[in-house]
Design a protein around this nucleic acid. Structure first.
Length: 805
DNA sequence: GGTGCTAGCAAT
DNA sequence: TTGCTAGCACCG
């Protein structure tokens, strides 16, 4: 039996990025296994922290005295070999701490919560009690939440030995339980007693009869027994007292799916779909790590290809993982998978409560669910024996996490595909340039679905030149052609989707006399007007203040609103079309849990004529009665200083256009723009992805951008601008010394939004093709950033960033 | 991330 | 000389 455990402690620092050795006490010898969470003492005090066992052995090269493991938190390992290896790989490629990677992979409830408290060791004076323990002892001791005087006072008492600090590590993992029932006697005996009590206690007799036919080794929930036997829990209680049955604690799963779904059968495939399914299933059968790009126009039946490929994997006795963007994880999508695979499906996404997430995770971990559908973090689902991994809407930027570890789910999916020798299928109507370029190089097998499955025509796309509109009819959010088209649909009782592109655009307050714009006191951006709360809000830090009536700068009363928010558009639209029923969907109207689904359901039931929303309406919606899509401002994102601006605009316009005319009725799209000649808009009109790809690749080549170059972004932030800037200049020096002449180092520059949450941001972008020294140089920068991190300077490294701004 | 050690400094 | 604070290495 192993004497020593290698533990990764839950302290995210450079020095603790390698495991520490701990002694395994005799009583835990048979409990501790690799992959389990433990609690260990750490540091010079008696602080307790949680950790994860990453190795067991009998020797260690640490020659000090080992501390013993305090507690084992798990009965079964929470991380298998694959996920432990994956965590190491992730830490290396994203420059994140190993423990942070592990935490990211586990469901929320498995993250432990350390708690620090203080309690008196001797009798304190009444004054001391009153100042430091007004609510009694022990009390919480969280230095970040207490004022300095209290902290200093308590530390003083501690030095005097009058109080002590105690630690606790709370494990939040809790399975939901219910009372379970098992018969305590043989069926014959139960029947005998039933006969005896039949006259006096008919209910008890009924229960006994039910118990008699229950399988002896099975535990049934009390609620089920009560319902099936037609008795109240009280009767069961009496029966338990008489020794006829035993009660036990039964673990149950919280079921996030309340409505039953009608099962579906595989649909007939068109020739293109058939080829795709054949190629993918070949790879599944051959246990081959072959990666596919399924490039299919909206409505081409990608989902059916996914479902039939999954079916093949299941038939081979293997499992399937399907990733979708969070926003597309609507009941519509989930139901399609559930309808095909029923109880075998587990769903993971942020809409579930933490308890539900944990339960779904355990169903997967125990092999009870063999199909997993989920958003980004579901790529870490503990599925074993994977037969296929699917990533829908592969180009979505939400697959990249924008906090540590800054991983891209696509890379993780490819890693797991290699580990399991199974195909990875990337699907999109508008693949990311990176993916499409890799397919061109032969790294992915490209499968094209060019035809709409139900043979509907593609929608007709019109471009409305808003410069002309401005000259003719003045400043309005609605052009004349769009209004005519809307009116037509209203007359025909058809539905309309209107999209307001919010990226880089919002309504702000400006003074017409002096040009003063109301800005956030913490961040470097203007405040956004919110009519629902009648306030000005900062979208970066959440700062909120009253709407000014007088200009704070020149005291003029001519302070007005500019820009276009969804609320303002809704009001304008209501004025123009008083009879139309309008539903609004944006960050504000969907903040409450379930609001998103409710709005979509209402629209699906035709309880509204117009769905007005931001980007979130562009994805995955399928409403047959929608025959018109209007994009109010196509080009607001084009002006952003980001090399992906064109790609994003093209993708968004193509996607939202796909919402029109999905059934028998033909669809029309109106795109309002001030840049009608821009290639992203022109090619979105002709729905020509290939030409867009070629054009954009040319632009990327010209600018030495991905996918021609790799990119790493480094950011330094500090409350004082000079500190952040200085740190970044030092980093640039280190980069220039360590990297080859071929590496392009851009910056340092202040970020486009230089100040967020009271901190200033400076960044550098490295572009390179081959840079063997990159990793060691970045590791060195990371190491050097440890010390100043104590003084509020944070340095982040983002490999292949999604936002260049 | 938290801690006790150490150096440096001011109050006594 | 003592008391306190800031900076810092270290935690198994």
């Amino acid at each position: 039996m192993a004497q020593i455990g290698q533990i990764l402690v839950d302290v995210p620092t450079m020095q603790t990025n390698d495991p520490y050795s701990y002694a395994i006490p005799a009583e835990l010898e048979h409990q501790v296994q690799v992959g389990m969470r433990v609690i260990v003492p750490f540091g010079r005090g008696h602080r307790l922290v949680s950790g994860v066992v990453v190795g067991l052995n009998d020797v260690t090269n640490f020659d000090g005295k080992l501390k013993p493991i305090e507690t084992v938190l798990d009965l079964v390992p929470v991380l298998n070999t694959e996920l432990r290896q994956l965590a190491d790989w992730l830490a290396n490629t994203t420059y994140a701490f190993r423990i942070t990677c592990i935490q990211t992979m586990l469901p929320n409830l498995l993250k432990t919560q350390p708690k620090r408290q203080v309690q008196p060791t001797t009798t304190l004076t009444p004054e001391e009690m009153a100042t430091y323990f007004p609510e009694g002892a022990p009390r919480d001791f969280d230095a970040t939440k207490l004022d300095d005087a209290t902290v200093a006072g308590l530390l003083k008492l501690q030095r005097a030995g009058k109080v002590e600090v105690v630690y606790e590590v709370k494990d939040k993992a809790a399975a939901k339980t219910t009372t379970g029932i098992t018969p305590a006697l043989t069926p014959a005996k139960l029947q005998e007693i039933a006969g005896e009590v039949a006259k006096r206690a008919p209910k008890q007799a009924e229960l006994l009869a039910y118990l008699a036919q229950m399988p002896a080794d099975k535990v049934v929930a009390q609620a089920t027994v009560a319902k099936k036997a037609g008795v109240t829990p009280a009767v069961i209680g009496t029966a338990a007292d008489k020794g006829w049955l035993t009660k036990s604690t039964l673990e149950v799963y919280r079921d996030p799916f309340h409505q039953p779904v009608t099962p579906t059968q595989p649909l007939k495939l068109n020739p293109e779909q058939q080829v795709a399914v054949d190629r993918i299933t070949q790879a599944i059968d051959g246990q081959k790590t072959e990666n596919f790009l399924v490039e299919g126009v909206t409505g081409s039946g990608k989902t059916e290809v996914y479902l039939q490929s999954i079916a093949q994997a299941l038939q081979q006795g293997r499992t399937a993982l399907m990733l979708v963007p969070e926003i597309a994880l609507t009941p519509q999508m989930v139901n399609r998978v559930k309808a095909r695979f029923g109880q075998r499906v587990a769903v993971l996404h942020s809409g579930l409560s933490k308890g539900e997430q944990y339960d779904e995770w355990r169903r997967i971990d125990r092999g009870e669910a063999t199909v997993v559908v989920g958003a980004r973090s579901a790529v870490f689902a503990p599925v074993e024996n994977l037969g296929i991994i699917i990533m829908d809407e592969e180009h979505e930027s939400s697959y990249k996490q924008d906090e540590n570890p800054r991983y891209h789910a696509r890379d993780v999916a490819l890693w797991r595909g290699q580990y399991h020798h199974c195909p990875v299928v990337l699907g999109s109507a508008t693949p990311s340039l990176e993916t499409r370029a890799r397919a061109a190089k032969g790294l992915y097998t490209r499968l094209v679905l060019s035809k709409r499955a139900k043979a509907q025509p593609m929608p007709t796309v019109h471009i409305v030149d808003m410069r002309e509109q401005l000259k003719q009819q003045g400043d309005s959010d609605f052009s004349e052609p769009l209004m005519t088209a809307i009116q037509e649909r209203l007359d025909r009782h058809e539905q309309i989707v209107l999209m307001l592109n919010r990226r880089g655009y919002s309504s702000f307050v400006m003074c017409r006399d002096c040009g003063f714009v109301l800005k956030c006191p913490n961040c470097d951006i203007s405040l956004t007007l919110h009519m629902d709360t009648h306030s000005m809000k900062c979208h970066y830090c959440g700062h909120e203040e009253a709407i000014p009536h007088v200009c704070p700068n020149c005291h003029s009363k001519k302070i007005r609103y500019y820009g276009t928010g969804t609320q303002k558009v809704q009001q304008a639209l209501e004025k123009l079309l008083p009879t139309a029923r309008i539903l609004r969907m944006d960050v504000d109207s969907t903040r409450r849990k379930g609001a998103h689904e409710r709005i979509l359901r209402q629209f699906g039931e035709h309880k509204a004529d117009i769905l007005l929303g931001t980007q979130m309406i562009a994805k995955g919606l399928d409403f047959p009665n929608v025959t018109l899509v209007g994009v109010l401002n196509a080009d607001t994102a084009l002006g952003l200083p980001d090399f992906r601006a064109s790609e994003r605009t093209f993708q968004l316009l193509t996607q939202v256009s796909g919402r029109a005319g999905r059934a028998t009725k033909p669809g029309e799209v109106y795109i309002q723009t001030f840049n009608p000649d821009h290639y992203a808009i022109q090619l979105a009109q002709s729905q020509d992805y290939e030409r867009f790809f070629v054009t954009e690749m040319h632009m990327r080549h010209q600018g030495s951008y991905p996918p021609y170059y790799f990119a790493v972004q480094l950011t330094a932030s500090h409350e004082e601008e000079a500190v952040a800037a200085k740190a970044m200049y030092q980093i640039v020096d280190a980069l220039k010394q360590g990297l080859s002449k071929d590496a392009i180092v851009l910056g340092p520059t202040p970020k486009a939004i230089a100040r967020v949450k009271r901190k200033y941001y400076y960044q550098v972008v490295i572009k390179y093709k081959r840079e063997p020294q990159l990793r060691p140089v970045l590791e060195q920068i990371r190491q050097a950033a440890q010390v100043p991190a104590r003084h509020g300077l944070s340095v982040t490294i983002d490999s292949e960033p999604m936002n260049f701004m």
